[in-house]
Design a protein around this nucleic acid. Structure first.
Lengths: 146, 146
DNA sequence: GTACATTAGTTCGCGGTGCGAACTACCGTC
DNA sequence: GACGGTAGTTCGCACCGCGAACTAATGTAC
């Protein structure tokens, strides 16, 4: 039987990263999903459909998430000049501030999770994980930004 | 400035693992949190407090999660013979069946995420990730089972 | 140009989820 | 026995995600 310890370890690691999101979002009086949305929007206005694919959400869930973020003054919907059906999601000043701050915190705390490892180990780990996340997959999952 | 690519890569990996949970839980007509609860309970009856710590949830959230799982016939609450305040959570036959099935599926799909890597790389990755998850932390986070 | 298929996003109903305050029952310590 | 602490629950609230059904708009074939 194949060794399943790697899979179990990756699940636990994922859980630790989730907890980082939980803690950081509390600091910014937001929810993990809101922080995820804001960080993803740092790269510039993005369409609802593209974001829902990237986040693995149904379109209706995306609508709700953006509604709540908009209601808090963190994002605004902007018209797509080329497609009247579509709209882009853009950060407000407050949203951008929170996105940048949360991004830094999440990064710092995930780095803290990794802890003190040698430069060789670090490079190897990064290379292996990058290999995993960049492997093409059948389902559409656009690269997720933090 | 320190390289943040590792942190970003780990966040993306965590997201991929979350999506695995999402997909597997749909197959078993459950939610990711319910699957997480059931898998954790495979190791035998566990107290609410211990589980809430392991899952990073408030006690009231644990109560709700167990309520819903119990209502679905997946777990039962059992009295603690030594402490009338406490109760243990135990899997029903149906719950155990789902837990075992989901655990296999999650493991297989996380393995599929990892993909084809050399035995050396695989061993190295496992070692590095195990190092991360077993590093002691200030907050109590009991080891999480899948 | 028109008809049809498809896409983008929204609305609605539903159930699940998580938090925190406040509470009760119980245990441990002095 | 009194008191502090623990285990778990209740309650109110807001957030979250899904899927069916819908409208508006775009793209494609004829």
């Amino acid at each position: 039987m194949e060794n399943t310890q790697l899979a179990t370890a990756l699940v636990r690691l994922a859980h630790l990263v989730s907890r980082v999101y939980g803690e950081v979002s509390k600091e910014f009086e937001a929810t993990p999903q809101q922080i995820q949305l804001l960080c993803m929007t740092l790269g510039g206005p993005t369409g609802m459909s593209e974001m829902s694919r990237a986040l693995g959400l149904e379109r209706s869930s995306m609508t709700g998430l953006v509604d709540r973020a908009e209601r808090r003054g963190l994002v605004v919907r902007v018209r797509d000049p080329h497609d009247r059906r579509a709209c882009g999601i853009e950060l407000t000043d407050q949203g951008r501030k929170i996105a940048l701050g949360a991004h830094s915190k999440v990064t710092a705390q995930v780095e803290a999770l990794v802890g003190e490892i040698s430069a060789d180990d670090r490079e190897r780990l990064e290379s292996l994980v990058m290999g995993i996340i960049h492997t093409p997959r059948p389902t559409t999952d656009a690269p997720l930004q933090t």
